[in-house]
Amino acid sequence: MSNYQASKAEGVATQATRPPIYPKRKRSGDARRARIKETIFYMCIVVPPMIQLSIFYIYVNFDAFFMSFQKYNAATNTFSWVGFSNYGTAIADLFVKGSWLNTSLIQTLLGYVLSYVWWPLDIIFAYYVYKKMPGWSFFKGMLYLPTVLSGMVLGLINKYLFDMLIPEIALSWFNVIVDPLIYSGGWRTWWFMFWWNGIVGIGGGLLLYCTMMNRIPETLTEYARLEGVGPLREFVTLTLPLIWGTVAINLVGGVADIFAVGGGTWFMYYGTGSTNPTSVGYYIYCLTLDSDGFAGYPMASACGMFFTFIAIPLTFFVRWITDKMDPKVQY
């Protein structure tokens, strides 16, 4: 009995010195303190970017909207209200055949619609790499290379090729006079660049599509192969539907960018001096860049807002279409 009591007392003593296996149940005060600490931590992370967004996204968007109804007076350094005057000017310019804005809109919309001729190429070549077709590893590295190389440098090297090398080859080897393809400008240059960018500009979505394709369970593709499905059928009936979510995001994002892109390419070739070839993005870019102080900003904002009103419903329309086509596959 005494032994039992001694061992019990020893056990109690050991328990007191050893740390408990399970942590003590926290009191409600501890939980509240932990939540307060977590909230402070959360605020520290979230508040600075939110302040930034409030100024550089929310305020900027509202300011651009209000500025589109204003006019800048350089003498007094103030903005004054002019109603829909800027919109009126933009719309009037839009309907003047051959005007800068008119050409910009036509070339932008035509470029967007025709770009669907080329967009499958990215997916097809990602499929080529995914299916490990001949030379896939080498081509994967090569297709990604233009993303690494400066677009400006490649563009300007192209300019030398099209403006100097090709006309020189045509004249000396074939005795044919070819005008410099970029320097001459106009619709001819626009069409040339459209074909050129389509044929050569592949590889941009390679990594993204490859990653999505690699997530497709191998059992599915194995099963398809056992059923005698060839690569083309596998691509159309299995791979494409399974990566459709990503494709749809890119399609919707593409609509959102219609009136914003294109500025860089033409700026690189012509600075701010081209009225044809051009694009809406380039037109607004030039208005901002060529602005004397704040003078050009209201018109740039008005054009931006006008095309935003067109782009928003278009974006939601394309999203609605892609949602309709979405097979909603989970894997």
């Binding site: 996204y57 651009a64 919707v252 208005l287 901002t288 900003y297 054009c303």
Partner: peptide, 16 residues
């Protein structure tokens, strides 16, 4: 911001 394209805000960013 990803889905709703607001175009032409560059001038306002520069202004601020």
């Amino acid at each position: 911001q990803m889905l709703v394209p607001i175009i032409g805000t560059m001038s306002s960013s520069l202004k601020i």
